[in-house]
Simulated scan of single mutants.
Amino acid sequence: MRRADRLFQIVQYLRGGRLVTARQLGDWLEVSERTVYRDIADLQASGVPIDGAAGVGYILRDGYDLPPLMFSRDEIVALVAGARLIRAWGGAGMARAAEEALIKIEAVLPPSLKTRTSQIEVHAIAPEMTEVVRARIDYLEAAADSRKRLSLTYSDADANPSERVVRPLGLWFWGKVWTLVAWCELRGDFRMFRLDRMADLHDLGDTFRQERGKTLKDFYRLMEEQGYRERT
């Protein structure tokens, strides 16, 4: 790891208002405590408001913002390509945020690197995306974040509809199809619902609590044990 990258990581680890020891930083960064002490001293000398002392720990004062960042070419490609993919395949809110992110990325780059963003020939086109699906992505992402129980009508691959009450846990993107990972109260199990097969989607006005065996982590563990198979 370059020293500049290590200094940046130290600042990131110190965010959040918690005390972090030099030993912890050394373990995370895979360097000695002596190196951490030297890096902390250099950061403090450059004006970064780090409080603390050796043997006690360090904390970053609230309100500190990093100066514009330098990106490698590979990092620029990854950021621009990712933003373009989300702009093409994400929800309406995601697409707007991706567009704003691209503007901000260019704003922090020096002139020598700004031209590279326009030269990155990685693009995404999504003719299958509709405004209905885009709005549904944003709606379900917000519902999963706030843990709102939802009611919906879902049609399987044979177009057979069924009424479901679900606990939205997260969204998965499969290249051309978005699916909702949820705990289905009808099946009493995890299910994945294609967004383009949903209808009559609305929240029930209440929220759900995380319960053992019904969380997204439990779903991931189940997928690792059994391998993916479509569940509806």
Rank of each mutant, 00 (worst) to 15 (best):
Val108Tyr: 00
Asp51Gly: 00
Glu75His: 03
Pro67Asp: 03
Leu109Asn: 05
Glu106Phe: 00
Tyr58Gln: 02
Leu69Pro: 02
Ile105Ser: 01
Pro111Gln: 11
Gly91Leu: 04
Thr117Gln: 07
Lys114Cys: 08
Ala88His: 05
Leu109Met: 11
Ala54Asp: 02
Ala45His: 10
Asp51Met: 05
Val108Arg: 05
Pro68Cys: 06
Ser72Ile: 04
Ala78Trp: 10
Phe71Ser: 07
Ala95Pro: 01
Ala92Asn: 08
Tyr64Gln: 07
Arg61His: 11
Ala88Pro: 04
Leu66Tyr: 01
Ala98Tyr: 09
Leu109Cys: 05
Pro111Asn: 07
Gly93His: 07
Gly47Asp: 05
Trp89Asn: 11
Lys114Glu: 12
Ala107Cys: 04
Arg96Gly: 00
Ala88Cys: 05
Thr115His: 12
Arg61Asp: 04
Glu100Tyr: 00
Thr117Met: 14
Phe71Asn: 07
Gly47Pro: 05
Ile76Glu: 14
Gln119Tyr: 11
Gly93Ala: 06
Gly55Leu: 03
Ala88Lys: 07
Ser112Tyr: 07
Trp89Ser: 12
Asp74Phe: 08
Gly63Phe: 01
Val80Trp: 03
Gly91Asn: 06
Leu85Arg: 15
Ile103Met: 13
Gly90Gln: 03
Gln119Met: 14
Thr115Val: 12
Met94Lys: 09
Leu69Arg: 14
Arg84Glu: 10
Asp74Leu: 13
Leu69Thr: 08
Val108Lys: 01
Ala101Pro: 03
Glu75Trp: 02
Arg61Glu: 09
Arg87Cys: 01
Asp51Phe: 03
Gly63His: 01
Arg96Tyr: 05
Leu102Glu: 15
Arg84Phe: 11
Ala97Phe: 00
Phe71Arg: 10
Ala83Cys: 15
Leu102Gln: 14
Val77Asp: 09
Glu100Asp: 14
Lys104Asn: 09
Glu99Met: 09
